[in-house]
């Protein structure tokens, strides 16, 4: 579903992501982790076609993102850490706008259950300025889910959510994965990886340190010890510093 080979992203002379390759199959949730400045957001933005990669190939559902960006983007949704909404569009108008962009003909029938699932149906005629941070996040998610994407990218999905919101977000990610979506998310929160991710990719200074299931990663860095926490594994994998 998501195939990445040799992805490289440079900003001038600084290389944010170097020769990164991995695949994510339908139903899998890949967690991108790493210290600050590891290249997680650059990777996600490159995968979503927001910023151009300097080298490498990205295939979304079999479509080459560089050769056919429009075809690839039809299949994906990107959820930034901060919900970016249009100040003058109400909740319902946001969905109407996104429906037109993605050509979702039956958007009215799709939008209502989505709004109800995300518990913002009663806010349908309100502007973003009248919504709480969590509500805005839910609206951004509703916009992303409206066209039924098969590939989803979440950048720090739990930022700014209350405990109930965190629980709902985790459930939402898992239910989309169970429905066959391929999901990549970046997060600093290790418990999110344990509860949600089927696979983990550890980045440091733009390079892949480790990639595999949680069990495989644990085995790789536990060095034969038992009961080593995920936090300890992360520290061992990344060397305990940003550098």
């Amino acid at each position: 579903m998501i195939e990445v080979s040799g992805l490289t992203k440079r900003y001038g002379t600084f290389t944010a992501v170097r020769d990164l390759s991995f695949t994510v199959q339908p139903g899998e949730v890949l967690g991108l982790v790493g210290p600050n400045g590891a290249g997680k957001t650059s990777t996600l933005r490159s995968l979503a076609g927001i910023i151009p990669a300097n080298a490498g190939r990205i295939h979304i559902g079999g479509v080459d993102l560089a050769a056919d960006p429009v075809g690839a983007k039809h299949q994906l949704a990107f959820f930034p850490d901060e919900p970016r909404l249009f100040d003058y569009l109400t909740v319902r108008q946001h969905l109407n706008f996104v429906a037109r962009i993605y050509g979702v003909a039956d958007h009215a029938t799709l939008a209502q259950p989505l709004l109800e699932e995300l518990e913002i149906a009663d806010k349908a005629d309100q502007l973003p300025g009248e919504l709480s941070r969590g509500m805005k996040q839910k609206l951004a998610i509703a916009c992303g889910l409206l066209h039924g994407p098969r590939v989803m990218f979440f950048d720090e999905p739990l930022t700014g959510l209350d405990p109930l919101g965190i629980r709902r977000m985790k459930d939402s990610i898992l239910s989309r994965a169970r429905a066959g979506a391929a999901i990549v998310l970046s997060s600093h929160l290790l418990h999110l990886l344990e509860e949600v991710c089927s696979h983990v990719l550890i980045l440091k200074k733009g390079e892949k340190i480790a990639h595999g299931t949680l069990a495989e990663i644990s085995a790789q860095f536990a060095q034969g010890e038992t009961g080593v926490s995920l936090e300890e594994i992360f520290i061992r994998a990344t060397g305990g510093s940003e550098n």
Partner: peptide, 19 residues
Amino acid sequence: RLRVPGRVEVAFLWKNLLG
């Protein structure tokens, strides 16, 4: 009224007019 489906450029006109 923004009808779906339709030309996407019109959606931007609709959105920006609302602003």
